[in-house]
Amino acid sequence: SLEELLKLARHALRHGEEIHVLDRVITDEHEIKRLIEELERLI
């Protein structure tokens, strides 16, 4: 769900981890922040 993805993204950002989204691995902090902003808009 989007909520789950948002939780994962926030966790990854906090802990400096990578996040796997739709067969992509996002490691860049700015990309993760952008993902979080997009998800928050959708929810």
Rank of each mutant, 00 (worst) to 15 (best):
residue 3 E to C: 06
residue 8 L to C: 03
residue 35 L to W: 12
residue 17 E to V: 13
residue 33 K to R: 14
residue 29 E to I: 14
residue 31 E to V: 08
residue 1 S to G: 10
residue 3 E to T: 07
residue 33 K to M: 13
residue 25 V to C: 03
residue 34 R to C: 05
residue 23 D to G: 15
residue 14 R to F: 14
residue 14 R to D: 15
residue 12 A to R: 03
residue 14 R to L: 15
residue 25 V to P: 04
residue 19 I to E: 00
residue 27 T to H: 10
residue 40 E to H: 05
residue 16 G to K: 13
residue 16 G to N: 10
residue 35 L to P: 00
residue 26 I to M: 08
residue 39 L to T: 03
residue 38 E to G: 07
residue 29 E to A: 14
residue 29 E to L: 13
residue 13 L to H: 06
residue 10 R to A: 06
residue 2 L to T: 04
residue 18 E to K: 11
residue 21 V to N: 04
residue 14 R to I: 15
residue 11 H to Y: 05
residue 30 H to Q: 13
residue 9 A to D: 00
residue 23 D to E: 08
residue 39 L to I: 11
residue 20 H to E: 08
residue 27 T to F: 10
residue 23 D to S: 03
residue 31 E to W: 05
residue 1 S to M: 14
residue 16 G to S: 07
residue 31 E to P: 02
residue 4 E to I: 11
residue 43 I to R: 02
residue 15 H to A: 10
residue 31 E to A: 10
residue 11 H to E: 15
residue 43 I to K: 02
residue 17 E to N: 11
residue 38 E to A: 13
residue 25 V to H: 08
residue 9 A to S: 03
residue 28 D to K: 11
residue 39 L to C: 02
residue 2 L to H: 05
residue 4 E to S: 08
residue 20 H to D: 05
residue 8 L to G: 06
residue 43 I to W: 03
residue 16 G to W: 04
residue 10 R to E: 15
residue 33 K to S: 09
residue 3 E to A: 06
residue 33 K to F: 08
residue 28 D to M: 09
residue 38 E to K: 13
residue 25 V to Q: 06
residue 15 H to F: 11
residue 25 V to E: 04
residue 7 K to R: 13
residue 30 H to N: 15
residue 37 E to Y: 13
residue 38 E to S: 11
residue 20 H to K: 14
residue 35 L to T: 02
residue 8 L to N: 12
residue 11 H to R: 09
residue 24 R to C: 03
residue 22 L to R: 14
residue 14 R to Y: 14
residue 26 I to A: 04
residue 43 I to A: 03
residue 21 V to L: 15
residue 18 E to A: 14
residue 42 L to H: 05
residue 41 R to P: 01
residue 14 R to N: 15
residue 42 L to P: 00
residue 12 A to W: 02
residue 11 H to A: 10
residue 21 V to H: 09
residue 18 E to M: 10
residue 42 L to E: 06
residue 26 I to S: 02
residue 6 L to H: 02
